[in-house]
Amino acid sequence: MLPRLISLFVVLAIPANILGYSSALNDSERLLLESELTLAKKPGLYFILDLKDKRISLKARGILLREWEVKQVRYWGNPVAVKPISLTDKMTILPPKRERIEPGESDEDKKYELKALELDDMPSSYTLSFAGGIFLRIRPEAKGWTSIFPMTLSTLKRHTLFPLKTVWFSVKKKPFTSIEIVLNNKRESQALYWAFTEGTECIIF
């Protein structure tokens, strides 16, 4: 009798668990799709940060314009609701500077020497700040001996600064979420900085 009861329990419990899990998946996917539909209806570009599948998609009207593969994701702090949020600020130690044109000095033939704001001038490590206390820290994958310093800094931050920030925001009863995203290389990271403009809407999934 007992083995039969156990097998009945197993037969009933496993599918129930699977159903519950897939229901949760369906629900979060539905939230994502509903949010994307809201953004796709509007003219303009939007980002989808799929932390589960480790990719960042730049889209418009549902079309994929560009995709970034995410090497590594580290999540810290409060959970983020699956809904559109807008970029409020791009923060970096040395922000790119625009060149000033001196009137009368323009010469198309000298444009090779002219300094312009190009992809190479973009920072590769930066923080994107979103409404609701969400911070996205982007950096390229560190390689070689030069990576020792940034890696140490990142580890230190993770074990000291973020716990302290979490306590601080918790005491102040304000939300705080920090997501560290490591991209494949410097150029990818710079291209993401270029594509993100203030006010751009984004869904973190």
Binding site: L19, S22, S23, A24, L25, N26, D27, L31, P79, V82
Partner: peptide, 13 residues
């Protein structure tokens, strides 16, 4: 649990 909490009473698969 966020997705489940946001959608109480949602049916399955």
């Amino acid at each position: 649990n966020i997705s489940v909490e946001n959608n109480p009473g949602q049916a399955g698969w």
